[in-house]
Design a protein around this nucleic acid. Sequence first.
DNA 1: CGAGGAATTGATTTCCATCAATGACGGTGG
DNA 2: CCACCGTCATTGATGGAAATCAATTCCTCG
Lengths: 165, 165
Amino acid sequence: MPDGRRQILGFLLPGDVLAGSLLRERPRFSAKALTASQISTMKRTELQARVAMNVSILWAAAECCANEAEAADETIAALGRFSAEERIAHLFLHLMKRIASRSVIRDERYRMPLLQQHIADAVGLTPVHVSRVLSAFRERRVADLSNGVLEVFDLRELQRLGSLN
Amino acid sequence: MPDGRRQILGFLLPGDVLAGSLLRERPRFSAKALTASQISTMKRTELQARVAMNVSILWAAAECCANEAEAADETIAALGRFSAEERIAHLFLHLMKRIASRSVIRDERYRMPLLQQHIADAVGLTPVHVSRVLSAFRERRVADLSNGVLEVFDLRELQRLGSLN
DNA sequence: CGAGGAATTGATTTCCATCAATGACGGTGG
DNA sequence: CCACCGTCATTGATGGAAATCAATTCCTCG
């Protein structure tokens, strides 16, 4: 935003498709790489050509977009009604689920190359308060995020805090 | 949510399509009518049959879903980074734009049959605080929402508060 | 007229922001 | 090699925005 505030709408993991951008003329946001990334793009005209060949790709794009919308709805609920601890727990669970669907998890350790600043901008808090919440999680042996690795000690507690139901 | 908290994800106006629900197996939310409503539904199998006849309906559904995602992203930004006044101003502007695209507006008066409770659950505040903010808007001659009608006195100020850029 | 839901208003509390100082690294250049 | 930075994280003190608690008023409706 003009005054320097920032809201992170989400984090993309390897293999993720940005369907919203595929289907829509102009971008509603910017994107920034947190790690070295490889990106492939498709122009809308190319999408149209492919759909003409085989409709199923459009179904895929639509489903992908519906997934984004679903995630967005969860985020709205979290930002609207969750406390600071709950929001961060929710973000962790959300990322954990997506990371686990892509790779094998050992020892409940997840690679998350996020700065506390990123977490703050994703869940609508200040970096200072994020630090306090993460310290509390560490203190209470719930989870520990350091050096880009999230280690979960008490999944139950994390779920109790960050699940929508 | 189980403990009684509620988050309203959005408001549907006459003619709106719930594309997220069209494309997705099970619903991610419930819906409730605030006014007398007429609803038409389509099963996924019927959608598939229609797409087989004419692909353009799938494009329409996809675009519709992308619109939902776009609105959701705005809501995320508002909930994550906006103050109470800004959130309510943003909600008003969002609804005003959609209402204006459907009907002629006289005198900057918009029909919005919302209780303060609904506004509160949409923007993540308590009804009490919504009441205070609306009183402040009235006091400062920005806008007045009473009896289901929003009257805008100072559009500029409302935009200054509730626009994302 | 009474009852129940909605809105308003005041008093107090809570949570998070803000301000500010310090510590921990990791990289860089002298 | 190590003094010097810049960035990130942590911690404490204070302030402020919104929540909570509670009382009253205003409606509409039965």
